[in-house]
Design a protein around this nucleic acid. Structure first.
Length: 258
DNA sequence: ATGCCTGTCTGGGACAGA
């Protein structure tokens, strides 16, 4: 079973890239982030035409997450994280597909820091950590996939160079500590596990020539609980997608479970 | 040193993204 995550940066303008990628790589499950469209305008028919059932949690203009399943309909378990009924951001969606629990995550960016957006990021992260603790003990296979907006270390496997991002919310000690605390529950960072220390970037800024220079960050992660990690066979990044016409600034990342 | 691009909503400029 192949499970992928893809921050599309606007599903309306990215629809041609998304559909061709689904056709070319046939993932069984896909977590999408940054739909940037409302529930009513989600392109369900086009995605269904590509052979995928879908659930989505949209928001006009920004945020928005979805879960797709090839020749199947994801069964929604939850939309939004627990413990903040006033949270208006569409950043979390969770489904069950063929017995596997899948969460699609769009963790807040948090810039500029310090400030209220950074505070919101850390609070959201803590709610994710709390919810992940419950999922960890569920007894099912669980995959938490998405744009975590955290660069785990300054190493070449995570960032081409930390220098120009030193002040960025993605590299701050508080952000990294939250990610470490999440992993400390036992989760496997799939790509790190299979390619430790290797550049496996998933994001390249549109400007400053960062794609041409391969000046990327690894911020899209697929976390596996123990039952899922026991089945991990392969992982990767579909880097070529970043070089196509009208690309997202993220490339899809994926895992193969036996 | 700097959203330098890009998408979205909107109707041209602001906001958000990382």
């Amino acid at each position: 079973m192949k499970i992928a995550t893809f921050n599309v940066n606007g599903i309306t303008s990215r629809l041609p890239r998304l559909l061709e990628w689904l056709e070319e790589t046939s993932p069984d499950v896909v977590c999408l982030q940054e739909l940037k469209t409302s529930d009513a305008t989600f392109p369900q028919l086009a995605i269904q035409g590509g052979g995928y059932g879908a659930i989505w949690h949209g928001q006009k203009g920004f945020n928005g997450v979805a879960i797709l399943a090839r020749d199947a309909q994801p069964v929604e378990r939850r939309r939004g994280l627990p413990n903040d009924p006033d949270d208006t951001h569409s950043r979390y969606l969770e489904a069950s597909i063929n017995g596997i629990i899948v969460g699609s995550i769009y963790l807040p960016n948090g810039n500029p820091q310090p400030g209220p957006k950074f505070d919101y990021k850390l609070a959201w992260f803590q709610r994710l950590i709390d919810h992940a603790a419950d999922l960890w003990t569920s007894g099912e296979q669980v995959v938490l996939a998405g744009d975590y907006n955290v660069v785990a270390t300054d190493g070449i496997g995570d960032i081409y160079s930390p220098r120009s991002y030193l002040n960025d919310a993605l590299l701050q000690p508080e952000t990294r500590d939250a990610y470490r605390r999440l992993l400390a529950q036992g989760w496997t960072d799939s790509i790190h596990k299979l390619y430790p220390g290797r550049p496996m970037y998933t994001y390249w800024d549109y400007f400053r020539n960062r794609w041409a220079r391969d000046a990327g960050l690894r911020i899209d992660h697929l976390l596996l609980n123990a039952p899922a990690a026991a089945r991990l066979k392969a992982a990767g990044v579909d880097k070529a997608m970043r070089g196509r016409e009208k690309p997202s600034d993220h490339a899809p990342a994926w895992v193969m479970l036996e």
